[in-house]
Computed example of a mutant assay.
Amino acid sequence: MARSAHAMAPPDAAARRGAQAVVVYASENLPPFDAAFYEAARSGLTKVSELIVPPRDARAFSVPAGHFLRIVSIEGSQVGDLNLWNQHDLSERFFSGKTRALHATHVSTGDRLWSSLPNLRPMATITHDTLDWYGWDEDGGGVHDVIGTRCDPYTNVLLKGTEYHHCCHSNLTRALAAERNMPLAQAEPHVHDVLNVFMCTGFTRDTHQYFMKASPVRPGDFIEFFAEIDLLGALSACPGGDCSSGHSDDAARCYPLKVEIYRPRDDVLACWRSPPRNAYSRNHGIV
């Protein structure tokens, strides 16, 4: 919403607003994206598994370290909400906030998905994105955002006063619970802020509110990740469909998504190793 100023602007207001913007994290200090390695690893891939995520539902899956994960549009324009965990330790999970701070509000080829503290290491690297041509549109929107949280039943009750049980939060909770054979109440705290795959979003220029618009994804488009560690993932096919109008209801037309897992040639990974936990946690014995 638009904010009304209640305080009178001081004489130096213009000077204060004119302070120089400084990028917080120097991305050039991150480990470089080794395009040659990932391209070599992508050649000669063997598909080892695939699954279909039904509309308005979610499925969990495992991706061994050194394998590739693809999320594929197969029938119509559809966005998905992605959660990632360390396969062996659910407390290490995708950290969307730090990923946003280290890269940008939207991610694409060459960006990494970073894990939560105290680990703070790459969980996955984006190695191919058929929508990387989109860039930034006239509204400031981009694709694959790490700014939205996930649609959830709690916010739905808060804003609409109605309950809806196929929100992405609920879908991801059920998928994790089924995968790990745990009660829903035990699974829910592990569900976290997502990578909004294929979703086109941004902030309005006037009020800086989060917006969404019709996704540019079409059947055959995909985003691909290299698993840097053993991953457990869960993907929800959002009830918003292409998110051109709304979500958290049954009004939007929705489509399934496909998850594919690929194994590279053994010789390509001969000298590759999973990244260790962050040096700070290792140096100070933090567990």
Score class of each variant (00 low, 15 high):
residue 111 D to T: 09
residue 217 V to M: 03
residue 164 Y to W: 14
residue 190 H to I: 04
residue 58 A to W: 04
residue 110 G to Q: 13
residue 41 A to L: 07
residue 8 M to P: 06
residue 130 T to P: 04
residue 57 D to M: 06
residue 57 D to P: 05
residue 27 S to Y: 05
residue 49 S to R: 11
residue 65 A to K: 15
residue 52 I to V: 14
residue 217 V to L: 02
residue 107 V to Q: 06
residue 189 P to V: 03
residue 203 F to Q: 15
residue 136 W to A: 14
residue 150 R to T: 01
residue 255 Y to R: 12
residue 68 F to Y: 12
residue 183 P to K: 05
residue 57 D to L: 07
residue 177 A to Q: 10
residue 257 L to S: 08
residue 105 T to S: 08
residue 170 S to A: 14
residue 14 A to T: 03
residue 128 H to V: 00
residue 140 G to K: 09
residue 254 C to I: 06
residue 151 C to E: 08
residue 166 H to E: 15
residue 186 Q to M: 13
residue 151 C to T: 14
residue 189 P to L: 00
residue 284 H to I: 01
residue 100 R to C: 01
residue 215 S to P: 05
residue 192 H to R: 11
residue 34 D to N: 12
residue 117 L to M: 05
residue 71 I to S: 11
residue 28 E to N: 07
residue 218 R to E: 15
residue 112 R to P: 00
residue 264 P to A: 12
residue 85 W to A: 00
residue 190 H to C: 02
residue 243 C to A: 14
residue 79 V to P: 00
residue 74 I to T: 15
residue 215 S to Y: 02
residue 85 W to T: 10
residue 277 R to C: 08
residue 35 A to D: 13
residue 256 P to C: 12
residue 119 N to S: 14
residue 234 A to Y: 05
residue 145 D to S: 14
residue 113 L to F: 03
residue 103 H to K: 14
residue 16 R to G: 03
